[in-house]
Design a protein around this nucleic acid. Structure first.
Length: 859
RNA sequence: GCGGGCGUGGCGAAAUUGGUAGACGCACCGGACUUAAAAUCCGUUGGGCCGCAAGGCCUGUGCCGGUUCAAGUCCGGCCGCCCGCACCA
């Protein structure tokens, strides 16, 4: 008997898999098996993997190994999202070369990932910072540009003052940069845009087909796209000109009291030229933050521009035009009409500036003579009144009627408005994919000819704190114009790194293709990704961009897919959290630097009390990460994989605890001890059982084992890894102890152990191989077919049915499955645990749910 | 404000989708082995009450109410927490 030695076993089996090419995926048409593409969001090579990352990959690996055992040709690749600011920051802080820094991080992290025993096809590894990857990205960008899906535009952009670069709308969270956390500023810049809005409707509509995505993510994307149906129409300005507005409520047009423009609306700016108080208003409005607190605190203020417009339904009716701080220039037309009775902001504004409030929607049941709007607007449905030709219509019917009238008068038309805006992809940074464009004074904006791709980054670059290192490079940007040969300059912006990650899943299907991003036919066979696993933080960022990019690749002829969906199934996993501590001085302490005594934390080194912090996501800054290497050395990869999947449902956070780790460790040893004691040979798959296994303890064990097979199979299919693990414990708990001299029971135990090994193989692949070998099985557990539960053994022939009296359980009866109802009733009513509760009472009703429950109702 | 989710032992959780609440793990306690400890193994453990005991009774899934033979699960109303979006016209 021996203890399981992970330090020996784990590397040994990883070598065995590598030698056997177990995880290499042949092209779909060569495999003769159905394809299955499992992918975890690829990591940024920050330098080290901690146990928190491990959970993400472990989940994908369970699916990959399970599907492989189920006979699928599984594609499970890994790569590196290798461009990005941390490399540049390392350069600024300690003079590292971003390329070297990144590549050596990849070396380190690849080795660490391999320690986890993931069933990855490493032959397909890619890194986005390598020219052989990004040259295809440059080619696709040029194709997008030719097809009108990429364009250049001067616009207001979100500027991150810390990272010194532009951010996309999706990358601004609560008014702050998503990485730096710095309040975002507004700048006017020319930059490259991807026309995401071209697919607004499709991106929204196709969400409905993504039935293996979390509802939450689909809702978040739908909200982000923000489709509203309504009308666009024009107010004629008294004295010439017009103002266009967007509204979802044209039915309330007769309640209009004013028109309001955004502070940076062109007309506001024009008026400001002559009127200093308007200019002052614009300046003040620009000061306002965009965070929740700022908005809540901000009062609705405006300034009368002195302009008057004519009501579209009655040219003799004039409305004042104001500039107002609550009107956004970035949504709709940057102008609205105010209908105070039906909109709270309009009402607040009207009250403040004594503008008229005419109610035009009568709530159901309200009386037109007495209904009044005071401090609260009525936004619900009702009957239109005070509205001439709309009077008497429901709000629902009045909307198309009003639009019809606008159309008839040539003032406007029905329209759909989106909140979604195009994706600005230019970044003023060095460590990214160069945008393959040359600016020529004579020819304008010229694409780099395809035969000159890739445009590679210069290596002799000075990276300092401020500004774009590419723009400052003495020679790199100076090139002849490809069209006229004259002096020209390269585009010095690089792509947002989210561009790199918007197509990597397609590159994995054909990662060594030098002529094209991937072979169209091969990619179309592999895609979509059947199961994608990653964090919820990408609900609108990466996941929306990839959906856009896939459509763009399709429409530019790269990818012949039926629809534009890259990920058929999505699972958003929870984080690994860990306790945090702070010293008296306020610095973070690693949990290992703290001792707990009677619920109080003491800093070990100084013996001073420490503050117990929250349970938080593992992060370097809070010093609560558990390093992968140390952990695997001590406990092994299997313990890690088992523990992070065991304690909580995969979509929820799991708390890292020493005790939980010990529990997983104990289980590994228990499994090994049981296998080792049993030894070889255990019954092979399909070998006929000896006489006697169809009764007694042997039968009971076989039933448990086969039921657990069925249950774990279902659990894995449904991403319920924590339950699968609990069932493995149940099976282990059912193993008979000792070496009883009963051939049938020993056979059943051998079978149960073999099944257990197969069931835990996706979770603890190394232990499974060791056990597989010890039990005398041939080949690799990783290549064995998934076990099938014997229906004869999973069937419940005898069921225990509780008997209730007035809903309270009083007895249990054991019956053959499917026993006739009247027999069950008879048994229940005469049961000696039941009869005392019936004594002297009248039986009103007896409910018999077959094989489930009996309830006797008495009074 | 809008949208989504959640609330079950000391803790993480499970509950076949309306049918024995608390599987499984952790922790705790008790026992075995040991000179002792660690490791390991066995057992107990929602709360309360009765009983020498076997066992029994009551109660219990945030709170209040409802539907039902039966509610953690469905409905209505509160309370609390989490997440996303947000001056989006």
């Amino acid at each position: 008997m021996s203890r399981y030695n992970h330090r020996e076993a784990e590397p040994k089996w990883r070598d065995a898999w590598a030698r056997a090419n177990t995880f290499r995926a042949p092209a779909p048409d060569e495999a003769g098996k159905p394809k299955y593409y499992v992918l975890e969001m690829f990591p940024y090579p920050s330098g080290a993997i901690h146990v928190g990352h491990g959970r993400n990959y472990a989940m994908g690996d369970v699916v990959a190994r399970y599907k492989r055992a189920r006979g699928f040709n599984v594609l499970h690749p890994m790569g590196w999202d290798a461009f990005g600011l941390p490399a540049e920051n390392a350069a600024i802080e300690r003079g590292a070369d971003p390329r070297q820094w990144t590549l050596s991080n990849i070396e380190i992290m690849r080795e660490q990932l391999q320690w986890l025993g993931l069933s990855i096809d490493w032959h397909r590894e890619i890194a986005t910072c390598l020219p052989e990857y990004y040259k295809h990205q440059q080619a696709m960008f040029l194709a997008f540009w030719e097809n009108g899906l990429a364009y250049r535009k001067a616009s207001k952009v979100n500027w991150d003052p810390v990272d010194q670069t532009v951010l996309a709308n999706e990358q601004v969270v609560d008014g702050k940069g998503w990485r730096s956390g710095a309040p975002v500023e507004t700048r006017d810049l020319e930059q490259w845009m991807f026309r995401v809005t071209a697919y607004g409707d499709d991106l929204l509509a196709e969400l409905a087909t993504l039935d293996r995505w979390p509802e939450k993510v689909r809702t978040m994307q739908a909200n982000w796209i923000g489709k509203s149906a309504g009308a666009k129409f024009r107010f004629e300005i008294v004295g010439g000109g017009e103002i266009e507005v967007f509204t979802t409520r044209p039915d309330t047009l007769f309640g209009a009291a004013f028109v309001a423009l955004a502070p940076d609306h062109p007309l506001t700016k024009k008026v400001a030229e002559a009127r200093p108080e308007v200019a002052k208003f614009i300046a003040e409005a620009a000061q306002l933050g965009t965070s929740e607190a700022d908005i809540e605190a901000a009062e609705k203020v405006g300034v009368d521009l002195g302009v008057r417009v004519k009501h579209p339904f009655d040219p003799s009716w004039e409305l004042p035009v104001w500039a107002a701080n609550f009107v956004l220039s970035t949504y709709g037309t940057g102008a609205i009409f105010g209908s105070p009775a039906g909109d709270q902001r309009d009402l607040d504004f009207a009250r403040k500036y004594a503008l008229p409030v005419t109610p035009v929607v009568l709530p159901p049941g309200a009386d037109a003579a007495t209904h009044k709007i005071e401090r609260e607007a009525y936004t619900g449905p009702g009957t239109i009144y005070n509205s001439r030709f709309l009077d008497g219509l429901t709000t629902e019917a009045a909307i198309p009627r009003a639009i019809e009238e606008l159309q008839k008068r040539g003032a406007g038309e029905a329209t759909t408005q989106y909140r979604l805006r195009d994706w600005g992809v230019s970044r003023q940074r060095y460590w990214g994919c160069p945008i393959p464009i040359i600016h020529c004074a004579k020819c304008g904006v010229v694409g780099v000819p395809k035969d000159q791709l890739p445009v590679t980054l210069p290596e002799d670059v000075k990276i300092e704190g401020a500004g774009n290192p590419l723009a400052r490079h003495p020679t790199w940007k100076h090139v002849p114009c490809p069209t006229c040969g004259g002096k020209a300059e390269r585009e010095t912006d690089t792509f947002d790194t989210f561009v790199d990650s918007s197509w990597y899943f397609a590159r994995f299907t054909d990662p060594h293709n030098n002529d094209a991003p991937f072979d169209a036919a091969i990619a179309a066979q592999w895609l979509p990704v059947d199961q994608y696993v990653g964090g919820i933080e990408h609900a609108v960022l990466h996941l929306l961009y990839s959906r856009f990019f896939t459509r763009a690749m399709r429409d530019c002829g790269f990818l012949p897919l039926k629809n534009g969906e890259p990920f058929a199934g999505l699972f958003t996993q929870g984080m690994v959290t860990h306790e945090t501590y702070k010293s008296r001085a306020g610095t973070w302490l690693a949990p290992s630097e703290v001792e707990l005594e009677g619920g109080k934390a003491i800093e070990i080194s100084s013996h001073t009390p420490a503050e117990i912090g929250g349970i938080e996501k593992m992060s370097k800054s809070k010093k609560n990460v558990v390093a992968l290497g140390d952990f695997i050395e001590e406990y092994g990869a299997d313990v890690l994989r088992w523990f992070v999947l065991s304690d909580s449902p995969p979509e929820k956070d799991v708390q890292w605890t020493a005790a939980g780790v010990e529990g997983a460790w104990r289980f590994v040893q228990r499994v090994w001890t049981a296998i080792d004691e049993h030894g070889s040979p255990a019954p092979k798959v399909g070998s006929p059982p000896p006489p006697g296994v169809d009764a007694g303890a042997a039968l009971a064990l076989r039933q448990t084992a086969h039921r657990v097979v069925a249950a774990i199979t279902e659990d894995i299919e449904n991403f319920r890894f924590n339950r699968a693990i609990s069932r493995a414990y149940e099976l282990m708990n059912a193993m008979p102890k000792g070496g009883a001299n009963d051939e049938a029971l020993m056979w059943a135990r051998g079978e149960a152990l073999r099944l257990l090994v197969q069931l835990i193989a996706p979770f603890m692949p190394h232990l499974a191989e060791e056990g597989w070998a010890r039990l005398g099985m041939t080949g690799l557990a990783a290549e064995a077919a998934w076990p099938a539960a014997d229906p004869a053994l999973t069937a419940q022939n005898v069921v225990v049915v509780p008997v209730q009296v007035n809903g309270k359980r009083r007895a249990e009866i054991e019956i053959p499955r499917g026993l006739a109802e009247d027999k069950v009733r008879e048994m229940a009513l005469t049961h000696d645990r039941v009869t005392p509760f019936l004594d002297g009472l009248t039986i009103r009703k007896v409910v018999v749910v077959p094989d489930r429950i009996v309830n006797i109702v008495v009074a």
